[in-house]
């Protein structure tokens, strides 16, 4: 597999470590009243789609960027990649 690193171009997937669904970017507020239910969803439940999946990869043997890769889990085709930091900042800006 090749991951199209947003800064470095295509890189061998062996340089990366996989984490999972990019929903892990959306950590709930631990001080909220419903925190426990929200964290159960966040930590344990997954959409697990057969198709387009946004997921987190860490460029461990490279520049140590976390990258959100959009990939089809049936064909393994990669549709895009963004820096996770940018995605997270945009989400926070949107939420604010």
């Amino acid at each position: 597999m090749l991951i199209p690193h947003p800064l470095l171009g295509p890189r061998d997937a062996q340089e990366f470590t996989y984490l999972g669904d990019a929903a892990l970017l959306n950590r709930p507020d631990g001080m909220a009243a419903d925190a426990q239910a929200a964290f159960n969803d966040y930590v344990y439940l997954r959409d697990n789609p057969a198709g387009v999946h946004r997921e987190l990869w860490f460029h461990e043997q490279g520049d140590r960027s976390w990258v959100v890769v959009t990939r089809n889990t049936v064909t393994h085709e990669i549709l895009g990649a963004e820096l996770a930091r940018d995605v997270a900042l945009a989400a926070k800006a949107g939420a604010a």
Binding site: R27, A84, K92
Partner: peptide
Amino acid sequence: AGPVYRHMEFARQCLWPE
């Protein structure tokens, strides 16, 4: 050592980039 560093970068870049 490796996993914790990865975890810290996850927290820095993904959870609290601000």
